[in-house]
Design a protein around this nucleic acid. Structure first.
Lengths: 126, 126
DNA sequence: TTGCGTTATGCTGACTCCTGCATATCGGGA
DNA sequence: TCCCGATATGCAGGAGTCAGCATAACGCAA
């Protein structure tokens, strides 16, 4: 089948977001915060993680607070002062959450990418 | 395994969005516009569809224009005037697009919901 | 005890998206 | 010919989000 979509197919990409929300639909943990938690764990520092991802410290700090406020316990152990100025490391719960979201996300990603290829095929020439 | 997440598990829900975007990341067709296209097709009228979903006519009209501007051809056949005031029906291309997105979306939905159940299980008591 | 780098937090102006209002256009039917 | 209801489109005001700036608190090391 010949379709009018053909000329545009190379200019379309797929994008998606998956996140956990509370009962009222307020976002708790999504792709951005998840990536940030992983990078903080890796760097041991919120500031270093923000610098790398290009996010502002102010915004990211607020996002982390939102997650912790929802769950009611900390996901990060924070330290102020000291030779390095301070540091952040994941708590036991933080590690568990990141690990579970890792698995969830990579499964979802593979499935969605396949679905997108099928979709493009469906609106393309057969 | 006993975890601190337990008290919150009933208050978490999963949410997600999947959409097509252009090269620059500008959204073209997503869940909202897709649902709207389906409802317009069903009702035969943009106004009736907006009333049902609670969206403003102004906003929805702008969204439809965005999609059509991107593809470069109409997805809807529009009629002004007449006994009913006017009407909208999907073009051949519109029907194809909605149908392909239907399939894509329902597959993605099933897969993501399963992934979410596994995720909840992963952070729950074992 | 002074300096340094990071965590912690308030505030304001820019930016974006949406709502709501106003108005023009169109064509069948009374 | 005039009315009605839906499509078509501009514009101003509001709400939420984010960037960027400012500042305080903290604790090791020199």
């Amino acid at each position: 089948m010949e379709t009018k979509f053909k000329p545009k197919l190379d200019h379309i990409k797929l994008d998606y977001k998956i996140w956990l929300a509370d009962i009222n639909g307020n976002g708790i943990l999504g792709d951005g915060k998840w990536r940030m938690l992983k990078l903080i764990a890796e760097k041991g520092s919120l500031k270093a993680a923000c610098d790398e991802l290009g996010y502002t410290y102010r915004r990211t700090w607020g996002n982390i607070k939102k997650i912790e406020d929802f769950f009611g316990f900390p996901l990060l152990e924070k330290h102020r002062g000291g030779a390095e100025g301070g540091s952040m490391i994941l708590t036991e719960e933080g590690r568990l959450l990141v690990k579970a979201f890792n698995k969830f996300h990579s499964n979802a990603d593979a499935m969605i990418q396949k679905g997108f290829r099928d979709f493009i095929n469906d609106i393309s020439d057969k």
